[in-house]
Design a protein around this nucleic acid. Sequence first.
DNA 1: GAAGAGACGTTATTATATTACCCTTTACTA
DNA 2: TAGTAAAGGGTAATATAATAACGTCTCTTC
Lengths: 163, 163
Amino acid sequence: MLKTSTLCHSHDHHKHCISQALESAEALCTQRGVRLTPLRKRVLELVWQSHKPLGAYDILDMLSREDGRRAAPPTVYRGLDFLLENGLIHRLASLNAYIGCSHPEVPHEGYFMICKHCNNAYELAQHSTIDTAIAAEAEQMGFAVETQMVEILGTCAACRAAV
Amino acid sequence: MLKTSTLCHSHDHHKHCISQALESAEALCTQRGVRLTPLRKRVLELVWQSHKPLGAYDILDMLSREDGRRAAPPTVYRGLDFLLENGLIHRLASLNAYIGCSHPEVPHEGYFMICKHCNNAYELAQHSTIDTAIAAEAEQMGFAVETQMVEILGTCAACRAAV
DNA sequence: GAAGAGACGTTATTATATTACCCTTTACTA
DNA sequence: TAGTAAAGGGTAATATAATAACGTCTCTTC
């Protein structure tokens, strides 16, 4: 039942990946009656340009470079907040970083395996056994779950092989 | 199989709890040949004074108040680093906060349920079903786990009852 | 076209964490 | 027991992450 976000193996695939994400973001926003403004779209695009988690200030630098003038933090954080609220990206608390969500249609928490070597973050599918386990433990404690943070750091299969 | 850290229900119990923690910290450090210096001990004590996660700058303020003079950040962070390395406290990434570990004898990752209302953090026992689930998923991906971060935010049983 | 809401620019500030430098204390070893 | 290396910790400065407060512009809606 394990499913990871599809990683891109080529430049073309990656481009496809980004445009796919933007397209479905547009559709979702339209459907929900919220506005995917140019700024928000640009932030989303920047986040997707890497499959690796990106810091807010990284995005800020990219924006600034594009524009010439220096963008200010609230500009980026507003974009990120909107995208988070709409489930289009996830925040990785352990890295203070943000990453595109591969399945924004269904609101969900992100479970991640993060490789310390290549920095890729693999999003685990919802309804994994982890999900079940957490729900069960919470139930047992009488704890009402609101937000979950599951971030596993280590070495991915590819990097282990590459030693 | 669920076990939470014992919460203190009275002032006396709490005092007992702190001295217990300090005692076992002393023992562990001696056994490991590392030094639980006065500063480190003081930081540990401050962390334990609350069962709620405490920010580094909260600790800094407490230290400063005790001393009269203003302590500087590295003072606290060095203490926290030592305590983290020796498994005497855990760091909660989602809150940028630190909390005493109730079972420092066995090195382990912390799994936490954090109540948004009372701010208590309940540490789940190792070998919980969550543990098993994560190991299984990692295994399946060929991912070598190093560090885990499981932080569940919500409302604890006591606070739910208290509505 | 006036009122109100939403988006975003701008400046400043707060919160969290680290670096670099230097001196003292501790522990080891000859 | 003197010499020395390593560890501990004070201090100032800086880096990184996030928010607050306020103003303006552009829509919609009446």
